[in-house]
Design a binder for these strands. Structure first.
Lengths: 209, 209
DNA sequence: GATGTTACTGATCATTTGATCAGGAATCAA
DNA sequence: TTGATTCCTGATCAAATGATCAGTAACATC
């Protein structure tokens, strides 16, 4: 036998992969009989043998007696929270209103801190292309009403949401800068008619090609 | 009763939360008896009543007869696969060698197709900044040895990995274009000493601020 | 008061599921 | 040849689990 001491045989690997895929698809491990059916075994004992072998080789954990008590040791998956992708944002309405949710994306803790205080926006327009933020990108935004100089914020000017770099000016005025030189800055003065509200600051970005 | 038509009562919400938390922690839904034990019920029928109510209100899905056949409808979590972030890539060595793995990120199916054939790279250098790919970004790459004109590829030139836009030229030559005008294109001719290998094409991008 | 809903206990039954026994066929090595 | 290992069928038993019935209590609405 040339099989390494803790390497599965081909058949055993098929069983292991079936369990991983089942877990990924169904959110729970399969039963012994589901494995047998999935791989075409007529007997549960065929599965039992493979599970015992995989356990010996340290590739599986089992919870004896428990239904679906099978856990792949080096589980390549992790539970992450799904975050809503918001569509139009309008002033005066709760940002998390259900009709705003367009889609959901999985947010790695890697990308987002404070899930409950964050949301996701799809970028429209190329005003921030100088910062590598392109139309169609998804940006992660942490909700907060204040920002520091230079942070990229999502702001509501009157009734329109926009993504810009935040730069406070003297006298309580605020400048919102685009990073695409084709767009000029937007200045908001305290005495202005315009109403500025900071919705949050950008913490991460997703793009799919 | 002021309860909205499809809102759970307080007790029902407790049951729903227990199921969500259990799923998050254990990677599978609880059994009816595990719910009863977790919430201090002496009878499985207490749980059955709540599950029926939650199902009526559209908050649960059930798979009748199946063990752990409970699924929270608006599950805020999803199983995603963890993908290795590769460090240095060198020719002649298996790309997935363990010593290459620097970190892991959760990859949404949204971003990646074909998990097993993909990997993640951290971007160094600003040669692709014109395409919104900045130093420090993480890009998702699907492994394949051929590419189509205009796709962004990860290529190995002799012993160095690089990210560029792929443009085939006449006569079997290949041009690799940077998108930052400060960098010129790299042309590889068939008769050249240089050895070009396409490692894969970019399918997605992550950035954290 | 009558009615309906929510929220349980306690018990029982049927099905699903895990575990195990007996054995057969194929492969490989000594 | 013998023995070890893998890989499977077929059958059976016991435990885990889902489903259901009967009944009690609290509470709100009409």
């Amino acid at each position: 036998m040339t099989t390494g001491i803790d390497r599965p045989t081909k058949r055993q690997k098929r069983v292991l992969d079936f369990i991983s895929d089942f877990q990924l698809e169904n959110g729970m491990p399969p039963t012994v009989r589901e494995i047998a059916a999935g791989l075409g075994f007529a007997s549960t004992n065929a599965v039992a043998g493979h599970l015992a072998a995989l356990r010996r080789k340290g590739l599986l954990d089992r919870a004896p007696g428990k239904s679906r008590g099978i856990k792949v040791t080096s589980d390549p998956t992790r539970r992450v929270r799904m975050m809503p992708v918001l569509g139009r944002i309008a002033a005066g309405r709760p940002i998390h209103a259900e009709e705003n949710v367009e889609d959901y994306v999985a947010a790695d803790p890697f990308l987002v801190r404070g899930f409950d205080d964050s949301f996701v926006l799809k970028v429209e327009g190329d005003s921030m292309s100088g910062d590598g933020i392109l139309p169609g990108d998804y940006i992660f935004v942490k909700r907060q009403s204040v920002a520091e100089r230079g942070q990229i914020v999502v702001a509501l000017i009157d009734d329109e949401a926009t993504i810009k770099r935040y730069v406070p000016l003297n006298g309580g005025a605020v400048r919102l800068e685009a990073s695409n030189p084709a767009y000029g800055p937007i200045d908001i003065f305290p005495e202005s008619d315009e109403n500025l509200e900071i919705l949050g600051v950008m913490t991460g970005l997703y793009r799919r090609i």
